[in-house]
């Protein structure tokens, strides 16, 4: 009886989101992911599998004899043929990693303070974190281009200081540094909010008890707050790392000649080169890499929790 009830409520709760995601995400995406095994059309799109046959009727063109002309693994081969693609993956993971770490360092104290502030201010402080992100993305990046540009105050101040040491002016805009700054900025709220949501529920009595037992501030943080907040850290890291990985607009706008990332490469396949199959291969590889990483993180996370308990 209890088991049965559990089954019913399980489907009641997980059914609607599952159905929605299958219908409006999984099915459409699988159609396109299948493109990875097909040939590109000569003029863009894909080599059609359905078309007019010799008799002039619409029919499936592919059959058991000619399927090799329509289906292939060659697109995956291309990915491994040239080390460029793997190198680009490594570079993008590196950038996304730095972005995630920087976001965590900036977001943690802020989220912790908001969670500990008086209840009546909490919502306002949370709102203030996300408010700037309701202005348009492009305009925000433009604002950074003004701040980092050669005429901007930041660049002028930095170069003024450098000049004192006899170092020539450095370019801030169109550099790796600019890409990281803007990536951190764009993703920061997606770290603060999950952290806040998690930290907000922590039981202050635990910390007080620890203090009574003579634990100092750092001990209390490392032994109690940090382990308890790990689910929030993992959630925030996922919501920053994954989107940062596929970002192409930021490197495009502020990255200069070295700002080419995996997201730019994928965009190039689908648009400029009209090579949807290879674009799909790259997308599948990226998604698999992320899922693998998530599985590892989940496994480590479970281990971490066991230690904390």
């Amino acid at each position: 009886m209890a088991y049965n009830n559990n089954r019913v409520s399980k489907w009641l709760i997980s059914g609607p989101p599952l159905l929605y995601l299958i219908l409006f995400f999984a099915i459409p995406t699988l159609i396109m992911a299948f493109a990875a095994f097909r040939f590109p059309g000569d003029y863009g799109g894909l080599l059609p599998l359905v078309g007019t046959n010799d008799a002039g009727a619409t029919a499936l063109l592919v059959n058991s004899e000619n399927w090799r002309d329509y289906l292939t693994l060659e697109n995956f081969g291309r990915f491994f043929d040239d080390p460029i693609y793997i190198e680009l993956f490594v570079k993008s993971f590196w950038y996304a990693g730095i972005t995630t770490l920087s976001c965590l360092v900036l977001a943690y104290p802020l989220a912790w303070l908001i969670a500990r502030s008086p209840k009546k201010y909490r919502d306002l402080l949370v709102l203030l974190v996300i408010l700037p992100f309701w202005s348009n993305f492009l305009i925000r990046v433009y604002a950074w281009m003004i701040i980092l540009g050669p005429q901007g105050y930041l660049a002028r101040a930095a170069n003024g200081v450098l000049a004192l040491f006899g170092v020539g002016p450095v370019q801030i805009l169109f550099s790796h540094f600019a890409v990281i700054v803007v990536l951190v900025y764009v993703h920061l709220p997606f770290m603060v909010l999950p952290l806040y949501a998690n930290l907000e529920k922590h039981d202050m009595n635990l910390l007080d008890a620890a203090q009574d037992l003579g634990a100092n501030t750092w001990q209390r943080f490392w032994r109690i707050t940090w382990p308890l907040s790990l689910p929030g850290v993992f959630a925030g890291a996922a919501l920053v790392f994954i989107p940062a990985l596929g970002m192409f607009a930021v490197p495009d706008l502020v990255g200069g000649t070295d700002g080419f990332m995996i997201g730019n490469l994928i965009k190039q396949q689908f648009l400029d080169s009209r090579d949807w199959p290879f674009g799909s291969v790259l997308s599948i590889m990226l998604t698999l890499a992320v899922l693998l990483l998530a599985a590892i993180a989940g496994w480590l996370g479970r281990g971490g929790k066991r230690d904390a308990l």
Binding site: A26, M32, A238, I242
Partner: peptide, 18 residues
């Protein structure tokens, strides 16, 4: 998996798919 994949998949692929 279905919850994480839409975040991981490149937007351009998801847009074209839809």
């Amino acid at each position: 998996v279905l919850v994480l994949t839409p975040i991981a998949i490149p937007e351009i692929l998801m847009g074209l798919s839809l």
